[in-house]
Design a protein around this nucleic acid. Sequence first.
DNA 1: ATTGTCAATATTTTCGAAAATCTCTTTTTG
DNA 2: CAAAAAGAGATTTTCGAAAATATTGACAAT
Lengths: 251, 251
Amino acid sequence: MKTEPRTATRKWGPGLHPARDETPKTLAGRVAQQLRRDIIRHRFEPGERLQFEKLSKVYAVGTSPLREALFQVAAQGLVVAEDHKGFFVAPIQFDEMLDVSNLRANLETYAIRGAIREGREEWEVDLIAAFHRLKRAGLAVAEDQEDDDLRTEWEDRHRAFHYALCKGCGSPWLLHFFDELYDHMERYRRYFWKYAERAVAADSEHEAIMKAALDRDEESAASLLQAHFEKQARLTMNLRKRVEKATVAAG
Amino acid sequence: MKTEPRTATRKWGPGLHPARDETPKTLAGRVAQQLRRDIIRHRFEPGERLQFEKLSKVYAVGTSPLREALFQVAAQGLVVAEDHKGFFVAPIQFDEMLDVSNLRANLETYAIRGAIREGREEWEVDLIAAFHRLKRAGLAVAEDQEDDDLRTEWEDRHRAFHYALCKGCGSPWLLHFFDELYDHMERYRRYFWKYAERAVAADSEHEAIMKAALDRDEESAASLLQAHFEKQARLTMNLRKRVEKATVAAG
DNA sequence: ATTGTCAATATTTTCGAAAATCTCTTTTTG
DNA sequence: CAAAAAGAGATTTTCGAAAATATTGACAAT
């Protein structure tokens, strides 16, 4: 016999994504993480060209790991790749934002239903904890609406809350899509920070959703969550004209 | 002025995926396509190690494009990447198959509802055409159940039919997830060909779904589609024990 | 016998330069 | 003068070798 075929240690589920918190052990992975983060936080302009020479300096890596990182992020849609032409930061498009929002609404209501049916004690505990942390962050933001670090903390906890809601459903694929979509949504939300009144008034909605979930009331939880998404989308679209005016003026 | 910032030409939507039919202009893209195809068609064993030296010869490319291709496919979950350890063909896992199937059921029923509400004439025409092609392929397969080329043709048309069903919803993100999930599902289905009775008896279900869709009957279409998925999942799971026995015996 | 250490080997990862492709300007042609 | 062609320059893509990391097997210690 030649070589005993080694097989993958990781159990199963989509992708290579190193479980969001893990630190990648390769340059390529690290750059991918940074790049993702930097795009979400608008360190690059929407549609901006991502040149190798420039990025090589910014991230202090050679072309190989950079290229690999770019492909990873492109697979997620935060970067757009065009053969022989290069890579570009994904544009900001209102139509896409609505698409992402609608799909999230569908996915998360589906997930919460599953979680309510199958979620175990651990799910409940994590959910309550996540809400508590979100609530605290919301209060902090309300006190100082200009502090971007506080807002970032809120953003992280907001993601964690929604994730906790979905987690009990036990579908790795759904959670994978959740992550991909949430990244885009976060990017859009941050884009609107610049223009929106700084207000975090959604905590009561979050609380109501959580309570319905803990009561194992599938219908209430699902419809509250759906309404939550629709309301946020509506609020955001109200900003549309203002933003478009501002960007036109700036460009 | 320095450089007029070029921006991406592609409008928007997820990813780099070159619209499924387009031929990539780079080696990396071409290899990614081939690799995807080869994994779906089981030219590699589940869990098998994908070594650079070996793959370099198989696809006749250097390490750079190969590596980039691997990352692209890994982002989709068909390949699993482990830092400094290499790449592996995704394992075959029944739990995952069920997960994929359930999520597809949710996504496609959601899509068909949207399509029924918003789909235009073009959607109807494409759908009818796709069904007709699928039906023809089904008849061909029924005549010679051993011919793998016929089966492959059926498989392609089956994908096209489901895609046509969803397409009218007008959500690029949903269609993107559709593609990713379908690839996995096709891989699982092909895995079972080895063990299953060769029968393509689902065409009547497809026809019923299509008719409900064309009648713009959201509820019927959605529940028929849901039932379609559940039935297929049930049938497949019945094979589970047989397959497990076979693989244990082989290993 | 089992565990631990170390060196040797195999493999992945990264770099730097060559090749291929695209972009933009200039020149030629109708 | 407009439009096509050609050439120079910039950028991406690919290759081949060097560096970094994992794996294997031998040998020593408990």
